[in-house]
Design a binder for these strands. Structure first.
Lengths: 234, 234
DNA sequence: TGGTATTTGTCCGTATGTATC
DNA sequence: GGATACATACGGACAAATACC
């Protein structure tokens, strides 16, 4: 049962994307919208608040609610957009995507890795190292640490398919927040080899910490990107 | 008059930061909190929803609301954190910050710049080019385009102080959403010279589009960062 | 200048649904 | 099943900003 406010949210969003509610124009007033959706003002405002935090609309006190969904910007080097839930996000796309699992191992967190990941020392971990390919070119090197007590039964085979699908479908885990940090590092020899870096001598490092639906951090991933194919939007 | 839900939001956040509500523990139940704050459940949930979208807490249906405020992560190359409202964010800090205005000019948007900024052709613009220094080293080259009809009366002198202070204090403009895109480009000769790039042959480009409180995009800024000093957290 | 209607912002109380223990 | 806790939804009231006459 999808709640009413989510349906309203989706409908308004589609109407914005389709152009029924154009850029820089105002939406119909909240009073009108409650009539068209046969709902209370609270429910409608619940839907609107999601769009507002997404940055799709901007309510202006006493005036109305303006649409500020911006046109997508093109980049000369645009290829990869969106980070983190790479699997789900792009599985549908028609791009030639592949991944290759270099390393799959089980280990216990030692002091050094604890410092990096903030997992407590001696936590049992699945360590997965994967390379992402796009159009036959390696673009990202992922180094992931999953808590064994949450990603129970993870295998190399599953890592080659979709870890997130496994977590959600098999383990019924819900995925919560992801916290992200981005910076640049000089490329190591390993980076250069695995990512076939040519024009760049550095990599973009994206660190993701993912929490499950219970607020437990269960994944730490360091993704090393070929700068030529890196684009991030918030 | 600060609304009640914001006071509650601030109070809970402070209690989390002070450790009164510890990491990975649950907050008191919504019912209890409504009693301590003498408010309705709606008002309290309004406050909680802000904390949830900030990623500070995570509500779990039927169980409680968990604190997931994570410890700040250190970077070996950590210096600069936070982008965009650089002025306000760091003016208080004790770091040796300076900026130097290279170019200040008035111009009309032409076809090429319109493509870049999405401002309509012939829009009157203030163009500002600034270099950011930190501890005497140049770290960021900013190229900003401000709509003249919104940033009325902007001058070179103001740009050397704080443009945002001017917008807010003098022009009584309210600042709305900022949309951001990050990617990497090969450094130009100009980048290398102005930013004194040494170990890197590239720059991190952060594109900011800033909207005012009315939902009008009035600023487009392309910030070219020295990768050695670039760290971004979301 | 001022008053009125419109529109969003804040706040309350209540009822019911659903997940967890 | 019952108690607790969060999620959804309704309706009403008043405040504050804006627009318009």
């Amino acid at each position: 049962m999808i709640p009413k406010y989510k349906l309203i949210y989706q409908d308004i969003k589609e109407n914005i994307q389709s152009g029924k509610y154009p850029q820089n124009e105002f939406l119909p007033s909240e009073n009108e919208l409650t009539k068209t959706y046969h709902c209370s003002r609270n429910t409608l405002r619940n839907a609107l608040s999601i769009l507002a935090t997404e940055g799709v609309i901007q309510p202006i006190h006493g005036k109305g609610v303006r649409v500020i969904f911006p046109p997508e910007v093109e980049h000369p080097n645009f290829i990869y957009h969106g980070i983190g839930q790479f699997d789900e996000a792009l599985e549908e796309d028609e791009v030639a995507l592949k991944k290759f699992v270099n390393v799959f191992s089980e280990l216990y967190i030692n002091e050094e890795i604890s410092k990096l990941t903030t997992f407590p020392i001696n936590t049992p971990i699945y360590y997965v190292e994967r390379v992402r390919y796009m159009d036959e070119k390696p673009v990202i090197l992922h180094r992931s640490y999953f808590r064994q007590d949450i990603a129970v039964g993870l295998t190399k085979r599953i890592s080659e398919a979709s870890i997130y699908n496994y977590l959600k479908e098999e383990l019924k885990q819900t995925i919560g927040v992801t916290k992200r940090t981005i910076f640049v590092e000089k490329a190591t020899k390993l980076d250069s080899d695995l990512l076939e870096l040519e024009e760049y001598d550095c990599v973009v490092v994206v660190v993701n910490r993912t929490y499950n639906g219970e607020g437990i951090m269960f994944e730490f991933t360091e993704s090393r990107h070929n700068p030529a194919y890196f684009v991030y939007s918030d």
